[in-house]
Design a protein around this nucleic acid. Sequence first.
DNA 1: ATTTATTATCGTAATATTGCAATATAAATA
DNA 2: TATTTATATTGCAATATTACGATAATAAAT
Lengths: 110, 110
Amino acid sequence: MGATKTDHFTESQNELAVLAKALGHPARIAIMEYLLKVDACICGDIVNELPLSQPTVSQHLKELKNAGLIKGSIEGNSICYCINEPGLEKIKVFFEHISDHLANKRNECC
Amino acid sequence: MGATKTDHFTESQNELAVLAKALGHPARIAIMEYLLKVDACICGDIVNELPLSQPTVSQHLKELKNAGLIKGSIEGNSICYCINEPGLEKIKVFFEHISDHLANKRNECC
DNA sequence: ATTTATTATCGTAATATTGCAATATAAATA
DNA sequence: TATTTATATTGCAATATTACGATAATAAAT
């Protein structure tokens, strides 16, 4: 045991879970926020922005990339990272759906 | 090692990470979707809706509750679970911010 | 070609998560 | 009160995540 039973859930559920999981670490939230703040593809200095070692940051970047939340391209002898919109779009839609539901019908039982 | 360095990040970053992490499992996405679908506090049959054992579902419910995404109250000899709006609001705002940023300025470098 | 700078991978230790059987708890009902 | 019903907790095994030092890989600059 210990492994998630992904095959028992829908593709959509697994996809959302992967995206949410990728954001489920403060370092990865910090990376996303930084990429938004500088408003550009950022080449390099993400490591300097975080209180973590270079290998650890590299690993977090890899996870965000695998989840489809950021993308990176080679730019000289550094790598250019930026936000990948399609990935974010999926989560955004999920929360929009939730908001719609909650706005339409307020159940008061709890 | 192995423990997340929460004290090196801001409160907001940790808070968002906790919320995202709670949604980072297909079973918990499924629970949220079910609570939305039935559009009511649901008393009981969540276990029947999921391909997991009762203790496992109970544990997932606990995690969603700890993260502030759902709330539960005792209702006879069962428990009434429903979505906790303030918790969802925080993540929604995070994604709205991201959307705004991306809408305003499209960088084409990647 | 060698150095320098930047990012990725490997190896490993510490910790966390996932899942379930067994058991406990609490309320309703016979 | 005993029984049923619904949910929670405990304990444990399997697996995943987090973090970093050491090392490798890559590409520009010298």
